[in-house]
Every structure is written in C-alpha cells, then in structure tokens.
Amino acid sequence: MAAVSMTVNGKAVTADVEPRTLLVQFIRENLKLTGTHVGCDTSQCGACVVHVDGKAMKSCTLLAVQCNGASIVTIEGLAGADGTLHPMQAAFREHHGLQCGFCTPGMIMSAVDIVNRKGSDLDEHTIREELEGNICRCTGYHNIVRAVETGAKAMAGSAPVRQAAE
C-alpha cells in the first residue's frame, strides 16, 4: 500500500491505496465522486477527464500515486456551493449538448480546459479539433460544439456571474 494525499475539489484527502489504483478508481470508489466516468478505459474516449493541477487529463491512464500532492478538479467541483451551475454546465443544458449523457462530464471538463488554454472566443473548427480526445457515441457533436461555444463566451463573464450567485 502507498499513502496518497491530494486536494480534490478544494478538499484535502488522504488514503492508503494499492499503487495500481487508477486515479479514476480512487475518485469513484474511494471518494465516491461518481460523476467522473469510465468509458473505454484505454485513454481514448475522454469520459474520465479531470483537471490535474489545472490541466485536463484522462484519469483512467493515471495512477492515484502519480497525483500525490496534486490538486484535482472533477465535474463535481465546477458548480457553486449553492448548486449554481458552472457556465459551461449551463450551456450544455441550454443547448442540449448531450443525449445519453455518459460522455458529458468529460466533455465539460475538456471544454473548460479548452477555454483555459485558448480563451473564450472559440470558432467551431477549433472546438472540433480540441474535442478530439472526447468521444460521444450518441454522435451528438453538433449540440456539444454549440454548447462549448456558448459556454466559453459565458465563462468570459463568469466571475461577476458567480459573485452575484454567491
């Protein structure tokens, strides 16, 4: 067993885990944060995307022990404490950027990462290229792209929105 401690959605967590425990297993099974999904388990589909020290990564292809000391944000960490949706979550709801919803947590975490890296003024081509690592098997990409475009714009003004909500 190996000791791990990390910050997940702002909370410090520590645990003893087997070194072979994947980050996604740790998040889902130890922390019971089941919003992060396992789709393909082969680092292709992106359903398991979380932010590790501010960067989107596939948590099915990381060991929990590799993230010792890291700061993790999962889909549960996006909404405000009062349940106010993050602008990107709100945009996915508004544009119906999902069908079955299984890929959605990863899509949203990736979308927020795209905005963090590329800014909030995103064209359709950029969004489609940047979503390369997220697969939607319902193939609902049109609405997902629209949601990301809108969510990105909303994120540009998100600080005042969140302040108002608080």
């Binding site: 680092s43 992106g46 995307v49 590790v52 960067k55 989107a56 990564m57 596939k58 292809t61 990381l62 990736s110 990462d113 795209i114 890296r117 940047e130 390369e132 690592g133 997220n134």
Partner: peptide
C-alpha cells in the same frame, strides 16, 4: 500528437 489530454501527460 494524440489529443489535448494525452499531450498534457
């Protein structure tokens, strides 16, 4: 190379 998540790692 790969996709954005793979490139982060």
């Amino acid at each position: 190379i790969g996709d954005p998540h793979v490139r982060h790692r």
